[in-house]
């Protein structure tokens, strides 16, 4: 594929220059694709871009374990937004990362209902228009169904949950050392399906951080369309506070600033 060839060329160049300890991306071997750290130019032949894995958490771990080194990473729009949100939370140091920015195709953007299908700097690919919230299934559901119907939809969806914690585990912005979902005072332990508090807590916890990468949807064994719920929260953040997630590292969430520092408009 042309795009992955271009990414390989750039990765080769950064590795040659020797500024990074490796380039994090995806490798395809024997038909299976998984995360891989390319540390020499020899193995770049296996670099691919699909299927997507959320690599931001891996970046965080590598940077933490190799404090002196820089890391290259192949990043789409959502990967970059995830890294920016992690940086806001003090989880990664963006200045130690060399991003190879990849713009997503229109088809991809539509599949993910992605509002920003490209990173700030695009090294490979052409930027396409993001999907407006109004055009998403989520907005459709909100406008077509009344509250009772929506509640029935979500109750049914959540009753399928098998409490695998996969949605949390893959999420680049679920990074608390102590997770409320594991706290018996919020969610009863050992019960399937978990109480609805499990899902509401997670929704609120990612409300001002969810970058819409879709990793949680993809990890959910019982096909709960979680991002549909979070997208509504994200839209509310925009409506109420004019706050957009993942675009600017200096722009802190209105939910974490105090009234003295920054009066909350719209409340």
């Amino acid at each position: 594929m042309k795009v992955s060839k271009e990414v390989r060329d750039i990765a080769e160049e950064i590795l040659r220059q020797g500024q990074v300890g490796g380039v994090l991306g995806l490798s395809s071997e024997h038909g299976h694709v998984g995360p891989h750290l390319f540390s020499s130019t020899d193995d770049l032949g296996t670099l691919v871009l699909e299927p997507r894995y959320m690599l931001a958490k891996v970046c965080r771990m590598i940077l933490a374990d190799f404090p002196g080194e820089r890391l290259g990473v192949v990043a789409r729009g959502c990967d970059e937004r995830a890294l920016i949100e992690m940086a806001k939370l003090g989880q990664v140091d963006l200045s130690r990362l060399d991003l190879i920015g990849v713009a997503c195709s229109e088809a991809q953007a539509r599949e993910c209902a992605c509002p920003h299908p490209y990173p700030r700097r695009i090294d490979v690919g052409e930027p396409v228009q993001g999907v407006a919230f109004a055009d998403t299934e989520c907005a459709q559901q909100a406008s077509e169904q009344d509250l009772v119907a929506r509640q029935a939809f979500w109750t049914h969806a959540f009753s399928r949950c098998i409490k695998c914690y996969g949605c949390r585990n893959v999420c680049p912005v679920c990074i608390c050392a102590e997770c409320s979902l594991e706290d018996a005072s919020w969610v009863a332990r050992g019960k399937i399906s978990p109480e609805i508090s499990f899902h509401l807590i997670r929704a609120f916890h990612v409300a001002d951080k969810c970058v819409g990468c879709g990793a949680c949807d993809a990890a959910c064994p019982v096909d709960i369309p979680l991002t549909r719920l979070y997208a509504q929260m994200r839209e509310k953040m925009k409506e109420m506070f004019g706050y957009e997630i993942g675009l600017d590292v200096t722009n802190k969430s209105p939910l974490t600033t105090t009234l003295e520092e920054a009066p909350l408009h719209g409340l």
Partner: peptide, 17 residues
């Protein structure tokens, strides 16, 4: 099935959907 073979249980739930 959901508890003992979760990823087979999830196929059954998907069939139901």
């Amino acid at each position: 099935t959901t508890e003992n073979h979760p990823m087979i249980g999830s196929r059954i739930l998907r069939a139901k959907e």
